[in-house]
């Protein structure tokens, strides 16, 4: 009887114990779902904006990062930079970032997830760009999943944060230099939609009391305040026409939304805030 009671108590405790963890895991998974460096990189490339290596991180700094906090954040940054150079078919840079991703992942004891040989082979074949993007995206997701399961969800959250911040940084830098009104509006809309991701990231980092994470969260909250005033309104109205076309389902979706207006001054403030957080993450002090 005593054994049965203990077993029952264990199951209740187990169920109760996993509830907050499960919720945290769900938040992380949502962030991972909506973060896509490929999306922004593709937008930049398709608009004919020239590849700019100077915006990217210094891929040789990886050895200087001694804490798991910095390693996880910079692993995210390197992964985004690798994605950006891959999309732009800059094989040499993509391979340099792949090297940094591999070394940083090894320092975090997650190097086993990176199949450098396969990635190099795919990178060499430009026809396989989608397969390469799939490989890099899945690798990133597998590392995050593994860290989470190894009871290191904070590292998974930091890795995702680093990757997202680098994407945001590239978007802001490109938007600031843009003179084409239409392209600028599209980039501004991308910038404003990052508030959705940022809200989730802040939620994902909330449970951790580590002083570095608390400081990072505070910096990100400052950035969040700058984005607060912009609204993303999505109203459900009449559904768009749904039709069968060449054996596929095609639709235009509901309603339409306006592009977001951000002044040059506001954009500068957002970009400065992102740069400041990024510099602190990348500093080798």
């Amino acid at each position: 009887m005593k054994k049965n009671t203990l077993m029952g108590a264990f199951l209740i405790a187990f169920t109760m114990g996993i509830t907050p963890l499960k919720a945290q895991e769900d938040i992380l998974k949502t962030v991972l779902d909506i973060v896509s460096p490929v999306d922004i990189s593709d937008l930049i490339k398709k608009q004919g904006i020239k590849y700019d290596k100077t915006m990217l991180s210094n891929h040789v700094n990886f050895a200087a990062y001694k804490s798991d906090f910095k390693r996880a954040l910079n692993l995210g940054i390197y992964s985004t930079d690798m994605g950006y150079s891959t999309i732009n078919e800059q094989s040499k840079d993509a391979l340099s970032f792949l090297g940094s991703v591999k070394k940083t992942a090894e320092a975090l004891k997650v190097g086993q997830f990176i199949d450098s040989g396969k990635m190099m082979m795919l990178a060499a074949n430009k026809k396989d760009i989608n397969k390469l993007l799939e490989e890099t995206t899945t690798t990133f997701e597998n590392i995050s999943d593994y860290l989470d399961k190894q009871k290191k969800p904070s590292l998974a959250a930091l890795m995702i944060t680093g990757g997202w911040l680098e994407t945001f940084h590239i978007t802001c830098q490109v938007a600031q230099k843009q003179s084409d009104k239409k392209v600028k509006e599209e980039l501004n809309t991308k910038i404003v939609t990052q508030k959705i991701v940022l809200e989730k990231i802040l939620e994902a980092l909330k449970p951790y009391s580590d002083k570095d994470i608390v400081k990072l969260r505070s910096d990100l909250s400052g950035l969040s305040k700058l984005l607060e005033k912009y609204k993303i309104e999505q109203e459900s109205g009449t559904a768009g026409e749904v039709k069968e076309e060449n054996g596929l389902i095609t639709t235009t979706g509901n309603n339409s939304s306006k592009d977001v207006e951000i002044t040059q001054e506001e954009l500068k403030k957002i970009a400065e805030s992102v740069t400041s957080i990024r510099s602190s993450i990348m500093s080798i002090k």
Partner: peptide, 8 residues
């Protein structure tokens, strides 16, 4: 499904 998004 092919989906042209009209609302961000």
């Amino acid at each position: 499904i092919q989906f042209t998004c009209k609302s961000t």
